[in-house]
Design a protein around this nucleic acid. Structure first.
Length: 931
RNA sequence: GGGCGCGUAACUCAGUGGUAGAGUGCUACCUUCACACGGUAGAAGUCGCAGGUUCAAGUCCUGCCGCGCCCACCA
């Protein structure tokens, strides 16, 4: 066995765990050893995940950290289960975002991309990409992400670009890509069109202006209501409702557009116009409003564009307004209208303004020719795939959102007037005006053969290449082994904010291009909010940097915290206190390991493993050993089941509670007795073995969540000689075979587990094991009761007290006897006496009743605070009486007896008996103190 | 306008119709030989509000209040 290097010395582990030293060292070693590469499967299953590619020049934020933690946890778990696992990293060129950053830099230099020209600008972006890329990859490494870096992809590398081109050509051939002249969302700051999704709607307080348009050739006026008066400069019609009695006589006539003087028609349109709203007459500006554009088509109205590509008013608007910004033009138009008396009314009105997600610019609807993906046929298949269960979306509530969006999907505008991205593989012919779409750059027009062709200037939406990502990362369109081996991928884990942007597009493109869904399960997590519950933002100053948290608390602490948040459906309000709590847990685990290391002198791991496999060996186990081993088995199975059900939060909690409450607080305290130098050799060696074995199991069950500290400890831990060389490769302790022995008729299970303790079936079913669990529970209750009595009576800490008990039956008396030595040791009792029937306890005892009706007395002559003790007993009695009333009321209710399930009724009856017995004892204890 | 989610201890969160939980914080005591990033004991809740279903509701149903999010071309 080759061991990983470790900071632990021969004599044991260092006093403190130094995450800053351990984490990079172990990560480098794992990476070098090739553990992140897929391994031939021993389970016959494969598990593949594609990491959502972060922006190539991005930095790790909490969302990335959450994604990577959840994915790494599941990936490591599957790897430990022997699956053929691959987790694919990569980066996204992030068209607009990256281009904006470089343009900002140019602006600071007093230059611009236009000034530079396309070629030099792109060179500049590539340089920027080179200098700023890789940071987030290294940050993912710091988090411990076991990504297969050898399969790294960038959306603009050669293979990805080839995939994009193939996809575009295929879709074009299949009639799913087309060009169209219609209104688009124009971001004048970035100088590009945007898809509907890239436009965020912000509710704003606005106004509704009523403007009078004179009807041509009459004295009449037609009043229209608008939220955007400046667009009137481009009005080419006014619409009224065909059924509106107010305006019947005006339909077909014309109005004179104020400030412009143009005559435009009055049309009747029942789709656009709501008679109840505003004045019931709507100005129609086909060039600058999506509804108006459609209305214009219905009535053959002109499209007059008065807002230019720079976002300012342009010709053919009247000269005074040209060059003005929208805001300036609005003020100017309103002032002019006011002067002429055309502005008849102003109301407050709320409206939503479209804003570019990336640049923040107010988006202007403008008419333009763009490339579109026809989504209806793609969406139909993507819907079916989820409906039929080929792909499962978790949580369920997001599935409904997916359906709703897919069912109402619009065609996808995929062309962007940017330079940074995949250039559209289409060539325009100057001779015949036709377009040639081709996989290889053509020299001639495929329609007329002319060589006067030039490539389309536009690039594709970034999400087009992202939408191919599961295909691209596995080698598509080439016939790759990886594709056969890992497609469809097993899991897509990401934030629900990109369900439509990304997940939906991958579904559509994957299904169309490969004929199969890109992933079997979509697991969506929520957004991480700042500590104040607000969305994290620089301006609010509530941004939490995961890398800083790693520096401060270690990657494991952050990961454990994020695991506990994985199931949150509402936003995740960041809590530093909890990260700190999990750092404390790591320290606790470290100290558990240190404790173990101090007591393993002479321990023979191979020998102990062999003994555990035999009945004689099992027979040597004491009650506490049986208890902790059985609980360790149970807990690791439970944790695995919780992961299967996507409950990482409960899995983390379950493992945490077991390690701290049961193993550290419970078993270690018991074990100290047998580990003392003066203890018997035999007892010592069994306890050493159990401690080492349980610690081994605990490290395995925790490793997927907190990989670093568990590996560091595991490397030191003495293990059987056939153990794996890294915890990453060790088996997860899950049930590997489960056979019911019906013929024996005893209902015992032959269960085998992977891990250090294999043949657990007989052991778990044994009477001794079940008895041991009861005994340990009793022991804990007893010790707690005595401690409580001492604390309440202010017995000086460290003072040993005598303990007397009275047990109501032979079974309990036997149990009390069995736990005698361990209870005396753990509780530091001065003596331990089981009172005979009818023998009264010392008059000046503090007393309590524990489970099963065992009475516990602590004689405290001279120490007992009688008043305090009376008060405590009264409180206790009042509590039990209240419970008894509730239980009795239930049991006296005939409907309850008749309708509640039998076992519930039985439980209540038992409880009543127990409560009555406890109360009787409490009353007599109280009476003793009366005098 | 439509839809979704969340309101549980001071804070961050679990909770499967059947005795309200964890971590942090708080109080008291303890420098007990793994760990003060620790130990022991304790206090702390009208489970947002109001109805309803049920033998039984934190849990299921309806309405309301508060917070957050998504979708939507209502001038």
């Amino acid at each position: 066995m080759t061991s990983l290097p470790t900071a632990a010395t021969e004599s044991g582990l260092p006093n403190t765990y130094d995450a800053g030293e351990v984490e990079p060292r172990l990560y480098a070693r794992w990476k070098e050893a090739g553990y992140f590469r897929p391994q031939a499967s021993s389970s016959g299953r494969s598990f593949s995940v594609v990491l959502p590619p972060p922006n190539v020049t991005g930095r790790l934020h909490m969302g990335h950290a959450l994604t990577a933690t959840i994915e790494d946890c599941l990936v490591r778990w599957h790897r430990m289960r022997g699956d053929d696992v691959v987790w694919l990293p990569g980066a996204d060129h992030a068209g607009i975002a990256t281009q904006i950053m470089v343009e900002r830099e140019l602006e600071r230099e007093g230059s611009s991309r236009r000034e530079l020209g396309r070629g030099p600008f792109l060179k500049r972006v590539w340089e920027w990409k080179e200098t700023h890329s890789g940071l987030i990859d290294r940050q993912h490494e710091r988090l411990g992400a076991s990504l297969d870096w050898e399969r790294y992809r960038f959306t603009m590398d050669e293979a990805s670009s080839a995939a994009v081109r193939e996809a575009f050509c295929r879709l074009h051939e299949d009639g799913l890509i087309y060009r169209a002249y219609r209104l688009i969302n124009w971001d004048h700051k970035s100088q590009t069109a945007l898809s509907d999704l890239e436009v965020e709607h912000r509710e704003t307080a606005g106004k509704l202006w009523h403007i009078a348009y004179p009807v041509a050739g009459t004295e009449e006026q037609l009043v229209v209501a608008t939220t955007r008066p400046e667009t009137m400069l481009g009005d080419t019609g006014v619409a009224v409702h065909p059924d509106d009695p107010r305006y019947q006589h005006l339909i077909g006539k014309r109005v004179v557009l104020p400030l412009v003087g143009r005559e435009i028609p009055i049309v009747a349109d029942s789709i656009l116009v709501d008679m109840e709203f505003g004045s019931g007459a709507v100005k129609v500006t086909p060039a600058h409003d999506f509804n108006d554009f459609e209305t214009g088509k219905r009535h053959d109205l002109e499209v007059v564009q008065v807002v230019g590509w720079d976002g300012n008013i342009c010709s053919p608007a009247p000269a005074p307004y040209r060059g003005m910004s929208i805001q300036q033009a609005r003020s100017a138009v309103l002032a002019a209208l006011e002067d002429t008396g055309a502005l008849v009314r102003v109301e407050d009105h709320k409206l939503s303004v479209g804003v570019s997600q990336r640049s923040g610019a107010v988006v202007e609807p403008l008419p333009s020719t763009q490339w579109y993906v026809k989504t209806a046929p793609l969406a139909a298949r993507a819907l079916d795939a989820v409906r039929s269960g080929e792909t499962t979306i978790i949580p369920e509530s997001r599935k409904a959102e997916y359906y709703r969006w897919m069912e109402n999907i619009h065609d996808w505008c995929v062309s962007r007037q940017l330079w940074w991205g995949h250039r559209i593989p289409a060539w325009h012919c100057a001779a015949c005006q036709e377009i040639t779409v081709a996989r290889e750059d053509p020299a001639n027009c495929e329609h007329c053969g002319s060589d006067r062709i030039c490539q389309d200037e536009d690039v594709l939406d970034t999400w087009f290449s992202s939408g191919l990502w599961p295909l691209t990362t596995l080698g598509w369109p080439a016939q790759s082994k990886d594709l056969d081996r890992f497609y469809p991928t097993s899991l897509m884990e990401t934030g629900w904010d990109i369900l439509f942007f990304w997940v939906a597009r991958m579904m559509m493109l994957g299904l169309h291009l490969r004929g199969e869904v890109p992933f079997r399960t979509v697991f969506l997590h929520s957004m991480v909010l700042g500590p104040d519950g607000q969305k994290m933002s620089k301006t609010k100053g509530n941004v939490v940097d995961p890398v800083e948290l790693i520096d401060e608390y270690g990657a494991d602490a952050l990961r454990f915290y994020l695991c506990t948040m994985a199931g949150q459906d509402a936003g995740i309000v960041f809590s530093r206190a909890r990260v700190e709590g999990y750092r404390n847990f790591c320290t606790k685990l470290w100290n558990l390991a240190r404790f173990t290391s101090m007591h393993l002198g002479g321990y023979d791991a191979d020998g102990f493993a062999a003994r555990l496999a035999t009945p004689a060996g099992l027979a040597e186990l004491g009650p506490s050993d049986r208890w902790i081993l059985s609980r360790a088995v149970e807990t690791s199975v439970e944790v695995g089941e919780l992961w299967t059900n996507w409950r990482l939060d409960l899995a983390a909690h379950c493992a945490y509670q077991f390690v701290w409450r049961e193993l550290c607080d419970g078993y270690v305290e018991l074990a100290k007795q047998d580990l003392r130098a003066d203890a018997g050799r035999r007892a010592r060696s069994v306890t050493q073995g159990v401690l080492a074995t349980v610690l081994d199991m605990v490290l395995r069950m925790l490793h997927p969540m907190i990989p670093f500290i568990t590996e560091e400890i595991w490397q030191w831990l003495p293990k059987p000689s056939d153990a794996a060389e890294s915890l990453m490769l060790a088996s997860y302790p899950s049930v590997t075979s489960w056979r019911e022995q019906d013929d024996a008729g005893e209902g015992t299970h032959a269960i085998t587990m992977a891990g250090p303790f294999e043949a657990v079936g007989e052991f778990l079913a044994a009477r001794e094991t079940r008895e041991a669990r009861d005994d340990v529970k009793r022991l804990n209750e007893l010790v707690s009761a005595v401690r409580m009595l001492c604390a309440e009576s202010r017995v000086p800490a460290g003072k040993r007290v005598a303990v007397c008990m009275r047990a109501p039956n032979a079974e309990l008396r036997a149990s009390v006897e069995r736990i005698r030595t361990r209870a005396v040791f753990v509780g530091r009792f001065a003596s331990y006496k089981l009172l005979e029937e009818g023998v009264a306890a010392d008059r000046s005892s503090a007393s309590a009743v524990i489970g099963g009706g065992i009475e516990v007395f602590v004689p405290l002559a001279g120490l007992i605070d009688v008043a305090e003790e009376r008060a405590r007993l009264d409180r206790e009695r009042a509590k039990k009486e209240k419970e008894l009333v509730a239980v009795s009321r239930k049991l006296e209710n005939e409907k309850f007896l008749a309708r509640a399930p039998l076992e519930v009724v039985e439980k209540e009856k038992t409880r009543r008996v127990e409560l009555e017995a406890s109360l009787a004892k409490l009353r007599s204890m109280r009476e003793r103190l009366q005098t």
